[in-house]
Design a protein around this nucleic acid. Structure first.
Length: 230
DNA sequence: ATGTCACTTTACAAGTGA
């Protein structure tokens, strides 16, 4: 939705403050916080597509944790390897990596979350042989993700487990959820001050079931990270 | 590997992008 339609009042009644960067149809990101939120930024310097609402950042002042810089990304999907959109995805990821290294400190608490539209490793894909070389799992996309990790981030779900089958997205088509055809493309990446405080990382697969809620689930499931106070 | 879904337009179906 566009920013004008966002239900700020309803969320405030539930104790949340929200920073939004919305757009009709596709794109749109937000941060909801129960702790004070400041220094909200939208898009980023060097963004090749600044008119697409794909990035929002904010500083969460969460009591004992101290100030945490939170960045929420909606990475370009890329459609198909070899397409113009795929090329645009790689270029956009390169710009994000440049922005990270030029404007952030790997020693400071930074949490990068969102729909990365990239499955990092084989255990994050239900059938690596089917997905090898395909969009969401191609080598060039995964290289970009590894460049982010090499800069100084940890894939938070992987801090405490190497288990496979921990997926966050299942295609609506082909009964993919029922057949277990999932991918882990929704990630949380944290610098050392964040990963050091990670208590737990879980994916709430229940939310993907059509028996949950109003029966119209998203194709993504929530990914939940719990951090302890400093 | 494409069996769905939500959204758009000059709309009352068909294309698009995920």
């Amino acid at each position: 939705m566009e920013d004008d339609g966002f239900p700020h009042r309803e969320l405030e009644a539930l104790g949340y403050t929200a920073a939004v960067h919305g757009q009709k149809t596709y794109n749109g990101v937000a941060i909801l916080s129960r702790a004070p939120l400041s220094d909200v930024t939208r898009s980023f310097p060097g963004d090749p597509v600044p008119d697409e609402a794909r990035v929002i950042g904010g500083t969460v002042s969460a009591g004992g944790l101290g100030d945490l810089r939170l960045v929420n990304l909606y990475v370009i999907n890329g459609q198909e390897v070899g397409s113009d959109k795929y090329r645009r995805k790689l270029d956009w990821l390169d710009a994000v990596i440049r922005w990270l290294s030029e404007s952030h400190d790997p020693k400071a608490p930074l949490l990068l979350v969102g729909d990365f539209n990239i499955a990092p490793e084989e255990e994050d894909v239900h059938d690596p042989e089917t997905w090898r070389g395909k969009v969401l799992f191609s080598d060039r996309e995964r290289e970009r993700l590894h460049a982010m990790l090499d800069w100084g981030l940890s894939d938070l779900l992987r801090v405490h487990t190497r288990d496979g089958g921990l997926y966050s997205w299942w295609d609506y088509r082909m009964g993919a959820f029922h057949r277990g055809w999932g991918l882990r493309i929704d990630l949380g990446l944290g610098t050392a001050p964040v990963s050091d405080r990670l208590v737990d990382a879980v994916i709430d697969r229940e939310e993907r079931k059509s028996s949950t809620g109003e029966g119209k689930p998203s194709d993504h499931a929530p990914v939940i990270f719990t951090l302890r106070d400093a």
